[in-house]
Design a protein around this nucleic acid. Sequence first.
RNA 1: GCUCCCAUCGUCUAGCGGUCUAGGACGUCGCCCUCUCAAGGCGAAAACACGAGUUCGAUUCUCGUUGGGAGCGCCA
Length: 466
Amino acid sequence: MSVRTRFAPSPTGYLHIGGARTALYCWLQARRHGGQFILRVEDTDRERSTDAAVRAILDGMRWLGLDYDEGPVFQTARLARYQEVARGLLDAGKAYWAYETREEIDAMRAAAMARGEKPRYNGHYRDLGAPCRDDPNRVLRFKNPLAGSVLFEDAVKGRVEWRNEELDDLVLIRSDGYPTYNFAVVIDDIDMRISEVIRGDDHVNNTPRQINLYHALDAPLPRFAHLPMILGPDGQKLSKRHGAVGVMQYREDGFLPQALLNYLVRLGWSHGDQEIFSRAEMIALFDIGDVNQSASRFDAAKLSWLNQHYLKTMDPAELAPELRWHLLRAGIEPAGGPAPEDVIVALRERVHTLRDMAERARIWYAPIGAWDEQAVAKHLGADGARDALLAVHARFAALATWTPEQVHAAISATATALGVGMGKIAQPLRVAITGTAVSPAIEHTVFLAGRREALARIEAALARTG
RNA sequence: GCUCCCAUCGUCUAGCGGUCUAGGACGUCGCCCUCUCAAGGCGAAAACACGAGUUCGAUUCUCGUUGGGAGCGCCA
């Protein structure tokens, strides 16, 4: 039987970290086994679903490179199908109409709580055989088995068992005619021949009642896999403050999809001591059965480390368009400045994100904005600084070709000629070119400015030292 | 309150009864390298929640305690 998985987000918000990992695992499981991956949008909540959220989810999937073989399928397009199945269940005596008001239901739950029980619907209409009539409170409920228990083998949690007494008669069709989540998923997963239902841990509690529905529908059970939650750094549920932002925000913040995917794949899954996984390796090694059972915390520091790893190891040419995108975002005009590829080589060991890289690249695309007066005083005002700048300026002007190697040779020759260490030349030069005492290797710092600009900045610095 | 799930360094994890004086990675700290900042190299500190069993032997199995998480909707 072929492996078919689906990612089924509800369009009530952006695609966040937890959803992205679920999508990744579903995708990996399908790719690993040569199966199909389906995207299904669960939009039956008409109150909260929005088109903007649908777009955000689609954008996030595309940015991460999680391509799907079928879909997106919208549940609202399948309403007739849900009605049809509901009718069948009703005719078979496996479902019934109920007419309690919300207040009555609330009272029922409160009473159960007071008795020390779980808040549940009491099945009042279950055997009344009430006909279908027009009523604002009309809902179709499922006749959940009264006795016995539901047992299933979860691919990550192992054996899970529930007593039917714990379950109540869930609503299948709401008063507005739309199916509820539990009803729609089951029908869709059956119709789409989903072989493995991979979803968040928060759905385990729904699984037994869904299994009862599968039985009522006489359908074969898929394999279930419930992924442990991703918690915030403080061990609490992910909130806006930490991590619960849309994946596209990570792009804005300068992260690479490779890094995010690599981080996510290792959160809850591992393959020995390996930390770095290319897309191909993930596909080759991943198996849903190897996923951990315990919740994990989101660690921004490790994500940063991974991001820098990819920054350092990826081909600069591949990174260049991304850097250009961030430069523009930062209000920096790349045209006329150094090639982004060269900037990447100079900065990638010094920053963790493309956004930081763009910010630090500003000195080569725009005039020095602010001078670090302390650095100016210390390095431009140092003994010999003026002579060093004068000498290096002359050598730069005389260089046959303008390359980092030639620039380095010129600085080195200047140091030798003046009988001083590299630092005596590099630091004043660094301040002259950047206005600060911190920048990439001096030859790159100078090279990236371009010969004309480098000479001009040295002259300006010389003027400052008076 | 009730039900379900989880429990190895600060964090992510390896471990699937003896190989554990518990391994790796991020982070932290120290040293080296060095034109600044990084990156890199080397090294250090750092964990089996607790209590009973089972067993010749438990980090590994069982039960309980404690702690955490999830769910208990006409949301998904």
